[in-house]
Each structure stands twice: as C-alpha cells, then as structure tokens.
C-alpha cells in the first residue's frame, strides 16, 4: 500500500503554492490550475530564463477552445497555453473581463468615435 502511494507525484505551483496530486495516467499540468501561472523555462533563443509566466489575456481560438496568453514577468516574452477544464473558472473570467473594467475611451460614445475615424461601424465579426 505504501509503495503505491510513493508512485504518486505531487505538482506544486512555485507562484501560489497550490499542490495537486498527479495520477499515473495524467501528465503534469503545464500551468497551475489555481493561479494559471507557469515557469518560463527557456526563451526563443534557448537561453534559460526561469521567470514566472503570468496570465494576461484570453484568446478565443475556436469554439470550445480557449487559450491563456501568458507573459514572462522577467523577460517580457509572451506565450500561450491551452485552458483546461480543471482551471480556476473565476480566475479565467476575471482575466477576460479585466480590459472591460478600464476602457481607454468612453464606451458610451463608441459609435460616434468609429464614425469620426471613418471606420466600419457594424458590430460584425473581426
């Protein structure tokens, strides 16, 4: 019985300290399910970085597929990681709604502003 327990691996988040047990059939998560952070192992040129990748945005890739956009606190490089169903949903939605809470222009005058720049005012797909 004890031998079986030893085989279990424990995932610990280096940012928030969240621990979870990885079962044998599962692969270790590439980001923390609680704070959605991960560790930046190496940058594009292959240099070691070791900074913490913070979640900054949500990318709606397709239907039923979200990706978390992460940015390294140390070197500023950006990367994406697929969101899974184990992720903290409140944290996911709070990241998605952060830009809406601080709009760079008055939202109530948006149509007027778009018309002023001569742009397309229909609210269709981008």
């Amino acid at each position: 019985m004890k031998g079986k327990e030893k085989k279990k691996e424990i995932y610990q988040c280096l940012n928030c300290g969240w621990t979870s047990i990885i079962r044998e059939e599962e692969t270790p998560p590439d980001h923390c399910p609680n704070c959605l952070c991960s560790i930046h192992n190496e940058d594009e040129e292959g240099n070691e970085c070791g900074g913490i990748l913070e979640p900054v945005g949500i990318w709606v890739r397709s239907e039923k597929e979200w990706e978390i956009v992460q940015r390294c606190r140390f070197c500023g490089e950006m990367s994406t990681t697929p969101a899974t169903e184990h992720d903290n949903r409140i944290k996911l939605l709070s990241i998605a709604s952060k830009p809406i809470s601080s709009p760079p222009f008055p939202i109530e005058r948006i149509e007027e502003m778009t018309r002023l720049m001569g742009g397309n005012t229909d609210k269709g797909e981008i």
Partner: peptide, 12 residues
Amino acid sequence: NPMKLTALAMRP
C-alpha cells in the same frame, strides 16, 4: 477602431 477593440475585448 474603437468598435474592433471592444469587440476583441468582449470576445470571451
């Protein structure tokens, strides 16, 4: 384009 920007932010 403020309309496109807001559409991007509201996508999720």
